[in-house]
């Protein structure tokens, strides 16, 4: 089963990030390559889930890492590199989605095989659930469509919290809003999702 990426990073990873960041600030490109490797999956997942389009996510992630490198001189270390780069990625994704053609369709990554062993999926596809007749790709499409119906701000909190497992406090730092705002956005977003996904969670 695919585990969520450990977000936020633990203390050892954070210390090692600081060292890499310090080297990258001295224009050590190899150190920055390592940071990209370390955060690629997490940032990709954020961008992919914000756009529901893998090509957009691939373009955006390059842009995010290049822009972050250019801005790295101004990174003072007030937050972790992880929070800082996430903030850049969220802002970039929101800007992009605002400008994107509304008719841009979904372009989805394949689901990892581990989904079929996930407890939530097993329960949903059990005999009692009306979901049992739906295929995995139908579900995937429906989830992405529902997510795209949320506003950018609401989608961002759902992606960060419910998909990526980022704690509320960390999300509040990334988005520059209070923890209470994060919680209320999450609550509102889930209610909207509930109506969109009523057939799967009756």
């Amino acid at each position: 089963m695919t585990q969520r990426e450990p977000t936020p990073p633990d203390q050892a990873e954070d210390a090692s990030d600081r060292e890499l960041v310090a080297r990258a600030q001295q224009r050590d490109a190899a150190a920055y390559d390592e940071l990209v490797r370390r955060y690629y999956k997490r940032i990709y997942a954020l961008l992919y889930n914000m756009t529901s389009n893998k090509e957009d996510a691939e373009d955006l992630i390059q842009d995010v890492f290049v822009k972050a490198y250019d801005a790295l001189q101004r990174f003072k270390g007030d937050s972790s590199f992880y929070t800082w780069v996430y903030r850049i990625a969220v802002n970039r994704a929101i800007n992009y989605v605002k400008r994107r053609n509304k008719r841009a369709g979904l372009s989805l990554d394949d689901m990892d095989g581990g989904v079929e062993r996930d407890k939530a999926y097993v329960e949903l596809s059990s005999k009692e659930s009306p979901f049992r007749d739906a295929t995995l790709s139908e579900l995937q499409e429906k989830l992405n469509e529902a997510l795209q119906k949320l506003s950018d701000k609401h989608r961002a909190v759902v992606v960060l919290h419910d998909i990526q497992g980022v704690p509320h406090e960390e999300i509040s730092k990334m988005l520059g809003v209070s923890s209470g705002t994060v919680r209320s956005r999450l609550f509102y977003a889930r209610q909207l999702l509930q109506s969109e996904l009523a057939e799967y969670a009756p």
């Binding site: 920055y32 990709y44 989830l143």
Partner: peptide, 30 residues
């Protein structure tokens, strides 16, 4: 229902990019 929706949405974490995507990104950024 709310918990079920949250669990449904969290299934999206299984959507994974192709392995080559990271190499492509690394090369371009580098």
């Amino acid at each position: 229902r709310l918990v079920a929706v949250r669990n449904l949405i969290s299934l999206k974490r299984y959507e994974q990019p192709a392995d080559i995507a990271m190499e492509r990104c690394l090369r371009a950024v580098s």
